[in-house]
Design a protein around this nucleic acid. Structure first.
Lengths: 155, 155
DNA sequence: TCTCTAATCTATAATCGTTCTAAATAAGGA
DNA sequence: TCCTTATTTAGAACGATTATAGATTAGAGA
């Protein structure tokens, strides 16, 4: 079963209908390596899908997020939420210049999960580990980062 | 030197002037245990400071964030950015019902920092480790969390 | 202390991502 | 096929944040 089909299956099991819009959105999500935003997906699909509404994109993404099939990443350096079809615990590393996000898998993340549960008494429902930096490509372009800052995120 | 004074000092060293508004904002930030939002701070100070503008609160917070004196936490379950005067690497654990955020300090976080730097080739500038769950108080109120979800954050 | 001027503050409009609403459409079971 | 109900659509609404322009003020120097 393809990743796209897995997402559709998840929606179906939750009692949601199979629609062409949802298929297109799931496909766009799993095919992208770029952790797209809702607007990214909308822009990609609109040419092929003239009647598509942005609200539908948000609805489908919200449904997938609530079902735990994808994750929503806030504050990648721009103001939009990026979506990540990889739900394994891992670090999302965002470049503050180009806003691209790459994934880094580390055992330490799931160890940290357990430590937090043990220490807090909270019922843990999710985690987002975001790091911010300059990717190798943007480091070359930008020797001097004084005053750059991370929009609304600091450091 | 109080925490409030440390923030004022940081602003001063960056060439920014000492104003009553900034002092009040820094004081509100350091006195709060609740990781307040810009609006929280505005609402708290407005009664004592009738002429205060929300834009001033945002400006001051942005300046502190850019100087690395405080951190900005996105997506605590509501739509607003919460500010954290504690800049040590640590986990921020947000309750998805009451949106309160507590801090958990763990050595594992700074170990993870180093691992990410080594693995990525990125120039690391900041990190936000957010966990989501139900705090003990809200667990009691809410036995049944089916369908609750994390607004825009999933799981 | 007084003056001066750039920095700051205020009020408000603008922006933009996201959510809501109501009417039109289409999925899927009978 | 028909019916019921979920879904989609278009666009308005919303709310957090940012930008703007004019009034005010901190703080350096006389």
């Amino acid at each position: 079963m393809s990743d796209t089909e897995y997402l559709m299956q998840t929606l179906k099991e939750a009692g949601l209908r199979r629609t062409p819009q949802r298929e297109a959105i799931c496909a766009a999500l799993t095919k992208s390596r770029n952790h797209p935003t809702a607007t990214d997906i909308y822009a990609e699909l609109k040419p092929r899908f003239a009647s598509l509404s942005l609200a539908t994109v948000y609805n489908t993404l919200d449904a997938l997020v609530k079902l735990g099939a994808i994750n929503a990443l806030g504050h990648a350096g721009d103001d939009a939420v990026h979506y990540d079809a990889d739900t394994e615990p891992h670090v999302n590393l965002a470049c503050i210049v180009c806003s691209r996000i790459v994934d880094i898998h580390s055992k330490r993340v799931s160890q940290l999960d357990k430590e937090v549960v043990a220490a807090s008494g909270y019922r843990l429902l999710g985690a987002r580990v975001m790091y911010y930096g300059l990717c190798p490509r943007c480091q070359k372009k930008k020797k001097e980062i004084r005053g750059l800052g991370i929009r609304g995120l600091g450091n």
